[in-house]
Structures are given as C-alpha cells and as structure tokens.
Design a protein around this nucleic acid. Structure first.
Length: 567
RNA sequence: UCCGGUGUCGUCUAACGGCAGGACAAGGGACUUUGAAUCCCUGAAUCAUGGUUCGAAUCCAUGCGCCGGAACCA
C-alpha cells in the first residue's frame, strides 16, 4: 500500500460490550484495580476470525485499569490433538492482529507439576478419588439429563489408597483407561458437569512438549481454572458453551490452596458469520478433504487466510468492535465485515488499471510509433499521494465485459458506434468490430479524439462511460485469482441432514492466467494492496514473482451496475 | 421429561420505568473522468398473552421459540 495512510472518518459509535461494562463498573467502584485476561487457544488448528473477536476482547479489557495485561496461553492438555506448527501459526496471527502478549506466552503444560500438586491436595482433603470403573461404567453411572447419577463403588477409597493409586497412574503402572482421578462433588447434581468430573486420565506414548515425563494428562475442567488462578487472571472470558462449566470452574478455584486471585469466568456468544463456517473441526475437514489449499487459503476464514486474501488487521478490529459482545447467539451478515474491509481498502489502496479479460483495441488514428503520456492521481481523494503515468499508444486492451454487441438500455460502455472515455486519457469511439469465426468480437477498431487529451471533451459533450484500459507497452501478463464466498448457503451448518461440504461453492475460486497489469506492479512485494480501478481490491500473493506475478482479489468494488443490469 | 442461557427493523445492536435510535443491507435521488467513493432521502422491529403503573422493550406471571449441556475433547 501507499507510504502515507490518510485517515478516513470511521463510524466509531460505542461498541456494545457487556463485559466492558462489568469491568468499568468494578473499576469505578474500586472493586478492582487491574484487569488480567488471557487468550487460551488449543494448538490444534489455525485461528479464525471468531478467535480474532476473542483476542481483541481480551486485549481490550486488559487495556483498562493500571498494570493490566493479557496472557497468551497455549492450552496443550490433550497430547493427541496438538502440534507445534499450530503454536507458531497462532503466535504469528496474534502478532499480525496487532496484539502483543510480550513475554507472557505460557503453556498449560508448564503447570503440570503444580496441577499435580493441587490434585494431591484435593485427594488429601477427601475431595478427589481414583475411580477404577471402566469408561463405559463411568458414562453409564453418570446418569443423564433426566436421571440421577450413581456413586462409583470406588468413591470412598481411603486417602492413602487414593494417593498410592494416583502415584501409580502418574508412573505409568496403570494402563490407559484403567483408572481416572475424579473430583468428589455430587453424583446427583442437576448439572452433569458436577457429577464427579474427571480430573486426570492416563495417556501413554504421547508426542508432546513434555516428552515422556507424563503418563497422565489433566482434563480441561481441572486445568483451566487452575491455570487461570496460577496466572493471576481476574476475568476468564470464554464462549457460551462453557456456561454449564462455570459452577465447576468455581468449585476448583474455591478448593485451591491459596490462589493468587479468584478468577471470574464470563461467557459471551461466539461469532458466526453468514456464508462461512467457524469451527475448527469443519475447517479441518476443508483442509484435509482438499476443498481448499491449506489453512491459509484466501477463502478460509482463518486469520492466515484473510491475511493472504488481503484483509487489514484494523478492518477486522473495526468489525469486531462494531458487532459488539453479547450473550445472544447471532449470525452476523458478512456484508458487515465486507463493509469494514472496503472502508479501509478504499482509504489506503493506491489505484492502478488492470484488464482481467483483455479485448484488443486498435486506435486507428494513432500511428504505431506515436506515444502519449498522461498523469493520473494515485488516489482520487488524496492528491498528496501523487500521480502515476499511463501511456497511450495504438494498441491497447480493454475489458471484454465493457463491450456489448447489442447494448442493453443504460449501457454507457463500448458498443458499435459508441463513444466512451478511457480513464485519464481521452475519448474513444468504436468504429468497427472484428469477429472470429464464431461471431465473437476479437478486436475493436476505434478512433480517439486528439482534442480530448486527459479525457475532457473539448466541446463539453457528456460522455458517461469511463473505462479502465492498459496499453500493450505498459502491460505485462499476470495471474489473477478471483475469490468468491466458499459456500452457497448462508448458514452451511444449520442443516441437520447435510454436511457443510454439501454447500461448497464450486466457483469459489476462478483463476485468470492472462490478465494485463502495469509492468511496475510485478515488482511489488507480496502483500502489497492496490485497487484495480472499476474491478476491486487486489493484493500480491505470497507466491508471486516478478516474472510470474500473481494477484489475489481481496474483494470487488460495490457494483450497482450489476444490480441494475439484473432488472 | 431435566438444567442453563437467550428473544428489539432483513442483519448486528441502542434505549437500565418517560419520543423505540444507530450501523450494515435494501429502495430512491444528487454528484461523478472508477456504474467506486461521497452526500441526501425513504421504508423497516420490541416473541405471545395477561398483570403492575399516569406511563412498560424495560418490572411481575404464564406460555412459546431458538441455542447450549449427558467425550477418559476443549
């Protein structure tokens, strides 16, 4: 993008956020002096825009009060799911979003010793026991929504027996599934999470940061509240599905020996966006099923995908602020996100002209050796960004879509005999059309009005159509990838009988290999964003090279003509 | 059949007993060397039924809808 970044006015009306309200109230009532939050992703996939909402929330809350901060905690308590490549991706994505945990990057696995000590303490207090029932028996005896649970026959083992067994679990002397450590709470509790929840399970041969040192791994419900307490978290923000876990969260915090703080769990509604899917499981399906190229495919709602697509982090942030934080389930209109994106792209992207589907135009009253140079603003609203030069010569390209053999009503573009403006250059009239054997127009023979240099009619005549164009000598060929929404269905996962994969948009990617772009654009670095005038916003792909430039369409311009033409 | 959460324009939300407001989307218009941007205008909602009150989206009651919850996942 351009070196200067003019600031556009943005609608900055206060973001609705009930959690901010809670914290602000506590701060002004002096019930609180600082706010400590954490973002706790499990490293088992890439982060998506729903995580971005949580990241911005946690970092924004940690901006209140004095001495507040937000930790990044990789929640690696399940050795079967996690991978280091995700750890790296997560850190990169958070940094790109503009959030910085600084030195405060932690792993739940760093707390395994403290967690174990806490478990021993709970056993000693008679609040935890080793259960030797089989997984099936445990499930059966938990009861269900309508039926109370049954106490395990091992529920009243002595403290010393429990301690011995726990030690045996830890040392790997027991097989997987042979025993678990459970909190002793209430098998008849209305909330199934409180029916003696599991704290530890045995897992062997686990590739993990901790290597072979552990044979037992803590469950989320146990590890999470304690990790929060260890880190001095004040507000543990999570999504709605953990609501039923809150009593258990509080139980563990209450029964911890001298916690630094008593963190409070607050739940908010996760983000859903129309025409996309935001669950790691489904994103895994897209990647593993080969429906997209990878986690950073520009069609993916992952942070990495959106980055590659050409999104700006501030657009994501503005979007998240605008939709607010609430407890109501919702599906946000994707147009809200696109609006924020276009808002920033319009303000920041410098303009250029490119032709996606070239149609040859010969300007018959320009001699082959003649050249005319014109200066066009880099940005129509910010003159300070300077000018770009375009060269007009006999051979140029225009967009196939800008020619119509038999024009429909209100068609302002090229058609036999019609006059249009070449943006920044001149007025041009279509005199003759050359067709191929199929009757397809393959060349337009036109004449320009030499008095209209720059594009202004000498006699003041009105020419409504202005086309983008590029001369043969200014241009080089490029690959352009046009992305459309990944799904054809606004709520791809709301259909009980079908998979989200049934609603994949077969046209979500269209690759154009013979587009014409300005030569100097090919030298731009990956990530560079521009507007191809009248077409949309594009960015240089990470795999682009000077010899084989590749552009990704971030998003098209709003197109009121498309709506009109449909009528 | 249980427990928890949640219902305001098409969408996301505001109004904390006192004029139902904003943004996006939609429609219309102005301007325009991007059918972009910008500007102006319009239409559009309190889940239902009772109750309390001078006054209810807001408080109470009942009902209904939607979401979540029964992994040795998080």
């Amino acid at each position: 993008m351009s070196a200067t970044k003019p600031e556009k006015n943005r609608d900055d009306s206060a973001a609705p956020n009930f959690i901010a309200d809670i914290i602000d109230d506590a701060l002004s009532a002096n019930e609180l002096t600082r706010v400590v939050t954490r973002f706790p992703p499990e490293p088992n996939g890439f982060l998506h825009v729903g995580h971005a909402k949580a990241i911005f929330l946690n970092f924004a809350m940690a901006d209140k009060g004095q001495g507040s901060f937000c930790n990044l905690r990789l929640d690696d308590t399940n050795p079967e799911a996690e991978d280091d490549k995700y750890v790296r991706a997560i850190q990169e994505d958070i940094e790109w979003l503009g959030c910085d945990p600084g030195e405060r990057v932690y792993f739940a696995s760093n707390y395994f010793d403290k967690l174990y000590a806490a478990a021993v303490s709970l056993v000693e207090k008679g609040l935890a026991y080793v259960d030797s029932q089989s997984p099936e028996e445990i499930r059966e005896n938990r009861g269900n929504f309508y039926k109370e649970g049954l106490d395990s026959p091992y529920r009243n083992r002595s403290v010393s027996e429990n301690l011995d067994l726990l030690q045996a679990m830890r040392e790997g002397r027991l097989d997987e599934g042979a025993a678990v450590l459970r909190a002793k709470i209430d098998m008849r509790h209305k909330n199934l999470n409180m029916r003696d929840p599991l704290m530890y399970r045995i897992r062997k041969a686990a590739p993990h940061r901790t290597g072979e040192t552990w044979k037992i791994y803590p469950m989320y419900d146990f590890a999470h509240p304690l990790s929060d307490a260890f880190e001095g978290i004040t507000h543990s923000l999570c999504t709605l599905e953990f609501e039923a876990h809150r009593p258990l969260y509080e139980w563990f915090v209450e029964n911890l020996d001298s916690p630094d703080t008593k963190p409070r769990q607050i739940e908010f509604a996760r983000l859903n966006i129309g025409y996309t899917v935001l669950s790691k499981r489904k994103l895994h399906e897209l990647v593993e099923g080969g429906h997209v190229e990878d986690w950073d495919d520009p069609r993916m709602p992952t942070i990495a995908g959106m980055r590659r697509r050409g999104y700006l982090p501030e657009s994501l942030q503005a979007f998240c602020e605008r939709i607010g934080v609430a407890k109501k389930d919702s599906v946000v209109d994707v147009a809200l996100l696109e609006h924020r994106l276009r808002e920033d792209l319009n303000a920041h992207a410098q303009r250029t002209m490119a032709v996606l589907r070239p149609l040859k135009v010969t300007i018959t009253n320009i001699a082959p050796e003649e050249r005319y140079e014109f200066e066009v603003p880099v940005h129509p609203e910010y003159e300070e960004l300077g000018k770009r030069t375009v060269t007009l010569s006999r051979d140029i390209w225009v967009e196939q879509d800008d020619y119509m053999e038999v024009p429909i009503k209100k068609w302002f573009r090229l058609a036999p005999g019609k006059e249009v403006r070449l943006r920044g250059a001149c007025l041009l009239t279509c005199d003759e059309v050359i067709h191929d054997e199929n009757g397809q127009a393959i060349e337009l023979r036109c004449s320009w009005d030499p008095e209209s240099k720059g594009g202004t009619a000498p006699d003041g005549r009105r020419v409504k159509g202005t086309l983008h164009w590029i001369s043969e000598e200014d241009s080089t060929s490029a690959t352009v990838r046009l992305y459309d929404r990944l799904y054809t269905e606004e709520e791809p996962n709301s259909h009980e009988d079908s998979s989200h994969l049934d609603f994949l948009n077969p046209d979500s990617l269209e690759t154009i290999t013979e587009a014409k772009v300005h030569k100097e654009l090919a030298a731009e670095a990956p990530g560079h964003r521009v507007q191809f005038e009248r077409l949309g916003y594009f960015c240089v792909d990470q795999s682009s090279t000077q010899d084989e430039p590749i552009f990704n369409r971030t998003i098209g311009l709003r197109d009121s003509w498309a709506k009109l033409a449909k009528k």
